[in-house]
Amino acid sequence: MRSDRHQSAPLGLKIAAAAGLLFLHLPILLIFVYAFTMEEKSYQWPPPGLTTQWLAVAWNRPDVWSALGLSVKVAAVSTAIAMVLGTLCAAAVSQTKFFGREVISLLVILPIALPGIITGIALRSAFSLAEIPFSFWTIILGHATFCVVVVYNNAVARFRRTSGSLIEASMDLGADGFQTFRYVILPNIGTALLAGGMLAFALSFDEVIVTTFTAGQQQTLPIWMLEELVRPRQRPVTNVVAMVVVLVTFLPILAAYYLTRDGDQVAGSGK
C-alpha cells in the first residue's frame, strides 16, 4: 500500500524507527559474528580474531547432523500431515454449514493461541497416561497440533474468497469430486497451501517448548542448541548452526510472502 503523500517523516521518528529496527536485528547479527570468533569458551566482545574453522568443526560433528536430520524429518512429516488435515478442515468449515462448525473452527485454532508449555504438558501427560513411549511420532504429534493451524488459517482464508459456485459449476460440467479438487480447488488454493506449508515447516523446525515435553531423549536441532549453550566448549559451533537455522527458516517464509502477495486476485469474483 502506498501513500500519496511524499513529505518526509520528522527526524525524530526516523531515528526512533532506526533504533527500533536495530534493537530487533542487532542481536541476530551478533550471532553471525560469533560464528566466526577465535575464542571458544565465552562470548567475548570484541572477538579476539575471526576464523572460519568453526564451519568445518560443525560440519564434522555427528551430533549436529543427527539433530539436523531429525528436525528436518519432523518438520517435513508434520507439515505433510498438517497440509492434508488443515485443507480438509478448512474445506469443511468454509464450504458447508453444520452443527458445531464454529466450535471446530475455534478448537483447531486453539493450539496456537495456547502457550506451548500447556500444549507440551498436556501431550506429555496424555502420552504417559496412555503409556505411549516417546518416539519420532510423539514429536510429530506435538508439532502437528500447531502446524495444522497455520495451514488451516491460510486455506480457510482462500476458500472464503473462492466462490462456492465454482465447485458447483465444475460438478455441473461433469467433473466428479476428485476432478473438481484437482482442476478447480487445487489451482485456486494452491499458493495459500504452499504458503501455509512453508510457515508450518518453519514453525516446526525451530520449536523448542512442545518438543521438550514430547521428545524424550531425542534431540531436534533447537533442543541440541539449548544443551550446547550449557557447555563452555566449541561454543561458536552453536552459532554456526544458529546461522544455518536462521537461513533455513527465513528463506521459506520469504518465499511464502512473495507467493501469497501475488495471489490477491480474488477467485470467483467474476460478476
Binding site: S165, L166, E168, G268, G270, K271
Partner: peptide
C-alpha cells in the same frame, strides 16, 4: 448444464 447467476467462470 447450468448457466449460473454469477456465471462462476473459473478464474484460473
Amino acid at each position: 448444464n447450468t448457466v449460473f447467476q454469477d456465471y462462476a467462470l473459473f478464474p484460473h
